[in-house]
Design a protein around this nucleic acid. Sequence first.
DNA 1: TCTGGGGTCCTAGGACCC
DNA 2: TCTGGGGTCCTAGGACCC
Length: 402
Amino acid sequence: VTKKGRIIFHVDMNSFYASVEAAFDPQLRGKPLAIAGNVEERKGIIVTCSYEARAFGVKTTMPLWEAKRLCPDLIVKTPNFDLYRKASKAMFNILRNYTPLVEPVSIDEGYMDVTDWGNRSPIELAKMIQSEIYDKLLLPSSIGIAPNKFLAKMASNMKKPMGITVLRKREIPVKLWPLNVKEMHGIGEKTAEKLKNMQIYTIGDLAHADEIQLKQLLGINGIRLKQRANGVDDRPVDPESVYDFKSIGNSTTLPKDTTDEVEITNILQKLAESVSKRLKQKHVFAGNIQVTIRYYDRATITRSKKLNNPIREADDIFQTALYLWKKHWNSDAIRLLGITAQDLKDPDEAYKQLDLFSYEKDAHQESLIKTLEELKDKYGKRIITRGVHRSNQDQEFEEKSD
DNA sequence: TCTGGGGTCCTAGGACCC
DNA sequence: TCTGGGGTCCTAGGACCC
């Protein structure tokens, strides 16, 4: 039996936030543009910038003052996530017009499995998709074409903006192996440094590296990275993975470091409210709450608590977060606070848990039961499990954010 | 003049159970 | 009368990505 090769696209939007802004405001087109947080609130780092800005050396995560020094005429806008989410949805809808096998991986990129897409050549198909996105939304993209996700991802990165790159298995030694390991998806600074100590500098070096040594150095990830370097990657394109979110969290860097307990409490309250709102939007409960504290010196701790009774009301989340903060805060000035809901459960799971562990109903449990019943009334059977929930094609989903 | 906010996955130690 | 080995759960931290 011969294994049938797949044809995978990786569609990657170019400088997405900046491109969306320019698409909506002709004045911004062709100019150096950066999206950055508010400087007064210490959030002034470059999130994305246009290619015109990149020409000046402006880069993502660069502090705003540095970007302005490099490019005095830089136009700076604060992010408008609602707008980006709308553009993202429109973009993915275009992709889904070609095949349902579309897997969004973030707000601005996704995979497509077009193996069974008729008789047109993959390059022609990629051109059609790229043109349609540009003609309808004025948004540039790059598309990588390869037999698997990893190679498609590497390929889309090779030509920007508006590139289309094919990476065939047999081209790996010429197109992939000369690249520095740092260029490889999945290898960051720390791993690159470790590999350097093993005299592994290029993806080709990694492809031929000793597995025992790799495993010793990087654990199971070492083996996987070597496979990828050799172009081996069996992960399927999964359109449902978008609904399989594992956590929902919000965090904020404070305008100034603080030890003020009233201020800290107020911030935790606000974070709890936004996490609660998002849990409700997604129809899930939290089985675990995690608090993140970053101190003035950037030292960061996380502390979490598993809950016998899953929660989602703002006040329950707030109380849990407050408990964790009080228990673990070392009284140093705080730079950032965050709350993350983990161990997410569907309403029926949350309900079952309640049956099992509680003998007396308290106010929180009453509210949980009431919420569950309201949900059942409103959504009927569809809400009962996440599996069913997931297969509902009309389901609105928020793209994972950038 | 420094370094946001949203995530995922993996590892590792200790508690606990059989 | 001095201690095995396997498994799961919980918690914390680290690396990485966009």
